[in-house]
């Protein structure tokens, strides 16, 4: 039992392949999450300030993406863009490059689309939770609106948002596994390939599960530390 285990993991190199997959998973998750967060800030501000048309559009986007399974969003982006990307790539003469980079780009975009929808809600909630008195104080100091926003509202909102961002990140890192369905070479896909070739799905899926578990546990701990650091000086915050 142990011998077959070690021969599969070490000699046939599946252990390394899985680790590489895990690295890809972290990269997609992280890049997707960051893009989603950056995009979420203006969206959340639009909803917070109730900008007429934009606010409703963001609302629809967020409701739809949060209401349908992540898998469906991924299918939409993959199947919906195949044609279009092909045309653009051929027109510009980057056909080979598009074919190799395509799954990663769309995968990251899909993850960003999903995480952004959740981040919008988190950011909006945080913006609304900033105490009104502080904003009035800023106004009474005659701070220009832009400075009041960047120096008072946004930093305070980011502190309040950290817990929610943690939740979104946990969800995002788990959602990256869905991208494997459309052929991106991340942890889950590697595990599926290894399971298919070696005919030992139980082993490889369990390894994938434990790698995912390690990722979520480590990031949970890091977020806990960050939360403690950022709440330093806020009693009971």
């Amino acid at each position: 039992m142990f011998e077959t285990f070690s021969s599969l993991i070490v000699e046939q190199g599946w252990g390394l392949a899985l680790l590489r997959g895990a690295f890809v998973t972290i990269c997609i998750g992280f890049v997707g999450m960051v893009i989603g967060l950056i995009a979420a800030v203006p969206f959340a501000i639009a909803r917070w300030q109730r900008v007429p048309v934009l606010s409703q559009m963001v609302d629809v986007y967020s409701i739809v993406v949060r209401g349908v399974p992540g898998l469906l969003v991924i299918y939409l982006l993959f199947f919906g863009s195949v044609d279009w990307v092909q045309k653009v790539a051929v027109a510009f003469g980057y056909r080979d490059m598009a074919e190799s980079a395509y799954p990663s780009i769309i995968g990251i975009l899909a993850i960003a689309t999903i995480s952004c929808a959740y981040s919008v809600e988190v950011m909006r909630g945080a913006l609304e939770a900033v105490p009104q008195g502080l904003l009035e104080a800023a106004k009474s100091l005659a701070l220009p609106p832009r400075i009041a926003f960047f120096r008072i509202t946004l930093p305070l909102a980011l502190r309040l948002a950290l817990g929610g961002v943690n939740n979104v990140w946990q969800m995002t890192i788990k959602d990256t596994s869905l991208v494997s369905i459309v052929g991106m070479q991340e942890l889950m896909r590697m595990a599926a390939i290894a399971a298919g070739i070696t005919r030992s799905p139980l082993l490889f899926y369990c390894i994938a599960a434990s790698l995912f578990f390690a990722m979520t546990t480590v990031s949970q701990t890091l977020f806990g530390l960050a939360e403690r650091h950022i709440n330093h000086g806020f009693s009971g915050g």
Binding site: L178, P201, Y205
Partner: peptide
């Protein structure tokens, strides 16, 4: 802490073996 996809694969493909 683990994705649902992994769980479903462990149950369906893994345990089935």
């Amino acid at each position: 802490g683990t994705p649902m996809l992994v769980q479903i694969f462990v149950i369906y493909y893994g345990l089935g073996q």
